[in-house]
Nucleic acid binder design. Structure first.
Lengths: 136, 136
DNA sequence: GTGGTATTCAACCCCAAGGTTGAAAATGTG
DNA sequence: CACATTTTCAACCTTGGGGTTGAATACCAC
């Protein structure tokens, strides 16, 4: 469970330590594993694991510099998230606006509400209209 | 670990089924637990648990309508995520621009690079400048 | 080559996450 | 009241995530 890209990204950011690492890379620039591990109470190995998670999610990449592995933040992934979020935020707001319109029209002329089958609050269960396919 | 708000939100969205539920609420409007569970292969109880996770994260709320519990998408949380993402995306880009400037100035006059201690690519380990406090 | 430093690999705990089934709770309906 | 419907609660199982420690790897410095 959770092997698609978005799942990995969200899962990676669900951990405060990993979010903090991202934050530090964002305003501190690239850093080595040791540097990144220093502030935390946990072992270097643990941080190394965290970095692997971030890497698998595509949030960071590791360069190779002698025995050091400087970690670099890949800002592109943010776009992926933003896109997902914005898409559904938008839809939710649109639907909301449509609902407002319906309520208004109901209030006004007290008759059949346009064409949008919005909401169905506590009315008949509708039952068949669900669209599928998890987020692209 | 992971009891703060953002952690719960990201963790909630790390599951494809839960993301799908959010997506369906976003463009289908409120729906009951049964309706939401119908498309999936899993039990209704499992979906009920998913909804609890979403609710604890503040992504949805449940109204009370007889024995049904219509689920409603709380679009506000999206702002929280967007804010977090945008903040660090911005910083990363700023840092990037600053780096460009430094490289440019190095290229130009071949001397001490302004004041911003950007990047330190493979130079001395710097060692002490890390700022703390995980994302608010 | 010997040694020190930086990072990962491997084996191992512990516990929370997602799933199951079965029963209980809450509420409309004959 | 008896019953069907919708949802949650409770107990349980299995898997994976985050942590640990100890060894292996890779590289620079002497």
């Amino acid at each position: 469970m959770s092997d698609d890209r978005l799942s990995r990204v969200f899962a990676a950011l669900a951990d405060p330590t990993r979010r903090d690492i991202v934050a530090r890379l964002a305003d501190g620039g690239d850093a080595t594993v040791g540097e990144l591990a220093e502030p935390y109470a946990v072992s270097v190995q643990a941080v190394s694991k965290h970095l692997k998670v971030l890497e698998d999610a595509g949030l960071v990449s590791r360069r190779k510099d002698a025995q050091r592995r400087p970690v670099h933040l890949e800002a592109d992934v943010f776009d992926l998230m933003t896109k997902w979020i914005e898409r559904y935020r938008r839809e939710a707001e649109d639907r909301f606006r449509r609902l407002d319109a319906v309520l208004e029209s109901l209030d006004d002329e007290r008759g059949d509400p346009l064409d949008a089958p919005v909401g169905d609050q506590a009315a008949r269960p509708a039952g068949a209209s669900r669209t599928e396919e998890a987020a692209s």
